[in-house]
Structures are given as C-alpha cells and as structure tokens.
C-alpha cells in the first residue's frame, strides 16, 4: 500500500534526519519504534505529504506523493499527530471530528454519522459541545484519533497514541486498532510502549539514527535483544521475564506466558 524508495530528508542542510530509507508497507499492522529523535515523526509526515523529501520517492496507493497535495492524499492516508494541540483547531469536539469528513466531500449526513460513531469509539459522546482545548491530555489524544477514524481512510498512522492513557484508554485504542484491521486498513503506529507493540502489531520496524535498523515480524524483532538495545528500545516486560526463566522461544503476551505454563504443568 505504501512504497518508499531511497528516501532522504533533512530540516537543515548538513544534518540529515532520514537517509536512504527503503520500505514496503502492506496490510499488516505495523509498529514503528526507536530512539527519541530517530526520525519517526519526520518519516510519517513525509508519507503524509506534510514534508517534502529531499531525495527519493514515496507511493501511497499509487499516488506519487511528490506530485500530490497533502489534501488530495487525505482521503487515502490519515495521521494522528504526536502533539494533539497541533491537530485541533475547531470550537467543539463534534466540529473537530466532522471537519475531515466534510472536507473530503462526504455528504453531511454521512459525515455526521461517521463522526458520531468515531466519537463513541473513544467514549467522548458526553462531550460533543466542549471546546477541544478544555479536554484533558488523554481525552485530546482520543479526540484526535476519532477525527481521523471518522474520515475512514485506507491507511491510518498514529503517532504515540497511548501518551497519558490509563489502562482503559489503552484498551479503547486497542479496540480501535482491531476494528480498523478488521476493515482491512493499514494501521501504523509510532510508539514507545513495548507491551502495546507486542500485543497489537504483526510487524515491527525499528528506526535508528534516520535509518531502518530492523524490520520484521514483531516476534522475530523482539528476539534480537542486542539490536534493540542499540536503538534504545527493549523487549516487553513479559518477554524479558520469559527469557530470564530460560524459555527458548520469544513470548509476547501474558496470555502466551500463562498458556505455556499451563501446558508445561499438564505434561
């Protein structure tokens, strides 16, 4: 769905932020992890057409990003910003979520329906008339997710969606990702929460200093401890525990751990 070739970018001459990135992204749900400042946010802004590549090409569902305006791409690819304050500019929660659908020429009825459904998914239906800036940080993050989900694009990118979320909030986001996957959308998430990565994503890409350091099945990626360390990330807690206990295979979730334990007890 997305093809990136030889992508390079810098904000200022002489300090490259991304260099020589080649990636193909398919329907598999994908996590992007890596050190602060590795270039993750920059990368997804390039995919979205918000920044222009210095070199290389990006194709999103056959749109050549270089030759398409960000607005034209909006139907196809949605991005939830890392800083919610950068994304919100309407006066009420409902307007904020309706803005996108209306702009991509969805008819009013449909736009409202989509918006209300997205708002219900993040559990903000009680706050339709509130000014987005009066929400708490965790609610702002959820609102920004709803604003993109309502547009129903084929590709959805979330930049650190779980910031400030409690257990229930993370659970909501998990459900949303699952619902999107069920609709065959590509969900891509930049995230520092390794447990969340292990539980929700099939594929994991590790960025390091503007390059792709690792890319593969999440399980396979989390088995490469030394490489992860180099990128300032680590396997999830449960994976570490399993490894310390001498389990050979890479365990990703509590369920897997328990399941294995029960099997072992039965033998």
């Amino acid at each position: 769905m997305i093809k990136v070739s030889d992508l390079s970018f810098s904000y200022r001459k002489g300090t490259p932020v991304l260099s020589g990135i080649n990636l193909e992204l398919d329907q598999r749900s994908t996590a992007i992890i890596g050190q602060n400042g590795a270039g993750k946010t920059t990368f997804v802004k390039l995919l979205k057409g918000l920044l222009k590549a210095d070199e290389g090409d990006i194709f999103v569902n056959n749109h050549h990003v270089k030759e398409t305006t960000a607005a034209e791409l909006a139907k196809t690819i949605g991005l939830v910003f890392q800083n919610p304050n950068d994304q919100m500019f309407k006066r009420t929660v409902l307007d904020e979520v309706m803005f996108g659908p209306l702009n991509i020429k969805m008819d009013k009825q449909q736009a409202k329906e989509n918006a209300l459904m997205a708002i219900r998914m993040v559990d903000l239906q009680g706050k339709l008339d509130i000014n987005p800036h009066d929400l708490s940080l965790s609610e702002k993050k959820l609102l920004c997710i709803a604003a993109i989900v309502a547009m129903d694009p084929d590709i959805i990118i979330l930049d650190e969606p779980t910031i400030a979320q409690d257990h229930a909030g993370k659970e909501k986001i998990k459900q949303i990702i699952k619902a999107l996957k069920d609709k065959n959308k590509l969900v891509m998430t930049i995230i520092h929460d390794m447990d969340f990565v292990a539980e929700n994503f099939e594929r994991t890409i590790v960025f390091n200093e503007g390059k792709v350091l690792l890319d593969g099945d999440t399980r396979q990626v989390f088995s490469q401890k030394d490489m992860l360390k180099k990128a300032h990330v680590e396997p999830p807690g449960i994976t570490q525990l399993a490894e310390m206990l001498g389990i050979q295979e890479t365990i990703l979730t509590v369920e897997e751990f328990i399941h294995r334990n029960k099997e072992a007890a039965r033998d």
């Binding site: 979205k48 909006a74 996108g100 702009n103 993109i148």
Partner: peptide, 16 residues
C-alpha cells in the same frame, strides 16, 4: 503553518 498542516492533513486544499 501548524494549523495549515492540520487542515491539509484532513483534506483541506491549502496549496497551489
């Protein structure tokens, strides 16, 4: 420019 980004990211034509 932040708000413009927010707008064009959601389909409002701001370029051209």
């Amino acid at each position: 420019s932040t708000i413009t980004d927010a707008q064009r990211a959601r389909g409002m034509e701001t370029e051209g």
